[in-house]
Design a protein around this nucleic acid. Structure first.
Lengths: 146, 146
DNA sequence: TAGTTTATGATATTCATTTTCAATTGTCAA
DNA sequence: TTGACAATTGAAAATGAATATCATAAACTA
C-alpha cells in the first residue's frame, strides 16, 4: 500500500472525505519532504496547481493532517506554523537553526534517549513527545563570518 | 552590586533611560521568578502597581529586556510569548509540559551537554542556545487519570 | 442517482503583537 | 538647576496569522 492509499484510508477511518483540495495539499507537502513550509507557503504552492483554493481550506487541512498524524507541526519562533511530513521511522524532531542565515539542519537519530530516561525516572513524568531546537551558527556562516 | 544596580547599568550602557515603567516591570518579573508569565499577565500585574501604564510599553519593555539579557523568552506553543528572569548560573531551559493539566515543570541541570558535544562535532554547528521541551503527563495527572 | 453530510471559499473576526505619533519624561552639559 | 534634546510613553490604529461563520458545492452511501 503506497502513501496515497494510506492517506485515503486514514481519512475514511475517521469519516473524512477525500477532496481534491486535500489531495493537492498532500501532494505539495510530499514534494517538499525536505522543507519546513509554513501554512502560507503551502497555500502559495497549492495555488499553482489549484488556483481556486481558499486560504481557510489550507489552514483547516493542515490542522486535520496534524490530527491524523500525516504531518508534524513545527515551531521555529518565527510567528508562523510550519509543517513537515510525519516520519514513523524517525519521530525525532531535532532541528539546528542557524542564527545568521536561518538555515534549518535536520538531525537524525535519537540522542535524547538517555535524557528521556533520566527525566522519566527523576521527575516522574511520562514523556509523549519532545521538541528540541538548537540555535547557533552553521558551518557556512562560521567560515564566512559575513 | 545588587540586581537593581546591575539593571541600571545595563540600561545606561546602551543609552537607554531608566523609567518608572521599566522599573515596575522588572519588579513584577523579579517577584515572579518561579513563573513563566505572558506579556498580558505581566501587564495585568504591573497595572496593580502602576495603573497608567500602556500595554504597548509592556510589550516594548519585554522586548528590550530580552535584548539586554534580563529576561528569556519562552515559547510554550500557547500562542503567546512568555518570559522568565534570565539566570546566568543556569542557562538551561528545559521544560516539562503536562498535556493534561498544562503544568510546567522546570528541569535544572544540563543533561544535554553530551548531546551538544555530539552535534558540534558531527554537524559542524556551533551551538549558542537551545530550547528543549518535553510533552507528556505529570505525576498528578498520571495517578488521577482524570 | 438522490439524499445526506461534510467540505469549501469568501469574508468577517479574533487575538497577540507592532506601529504611529503627539505629548511627556529622563539625562547631561552648561 | 535649568534647558535642550533625545528617548519614552500612552492611546489608538494597524498588522498578520489563524479561526469562525455561513451559504453554496462537492463527496459518500444506500
Amino acid at each position: 500500500m503506497n502513501e496515497i492509499e494510506k492517506f485515503k484510508e486514514k481519512l475514511k477511518d475517521k469519516g473524512y472525505k477525500l477532496t481534491t483540495q486535500r489531495r493537492v495539499i498532500l501532494d505539495v507537502i510530499m514534494e517538499n519532504r525536505d522543507k519546513h513550509l509554513s501554512s502560507e507557503e503551502i497555500y502559495d504552492l497549492v495555488r499553482l496547481k489549484y488556483p481556486e483554493i481558499g486560504l481557510a481550506t489550507v489552514y483547516r487541512t493542515l490542522q486535520l493532517f496534524e490530527e491524523l498524524g500525516i504531518v508534524y507541526k513545527l515551531n521555529f519562533d518565527d510567528g508562523r506554523n510550519r509543517y513537515e511530513l510525519y516520519h514513523n521511522e524517525n519521530h525525532q524532531h531535532h532541528h539546528l537553526i542557524c542564527l545568521k542565515c536561518g538555515a534549518v539542519i535536520e538531525m537524525e537519530g535519537d540522542l535524547l534517549e538517555n535524557l528521556e530516561e533520566a527525566i522519566e525516572e527523576t521527575k516522574d513524568f511520562e514523556i509523549i513527545d519532545h521538541n528540541v531546537k538548537f540555535f547557533g551558527y552553521c558551518s557556512k556562516c562560521r567560515s564566512r563570518y559575513n
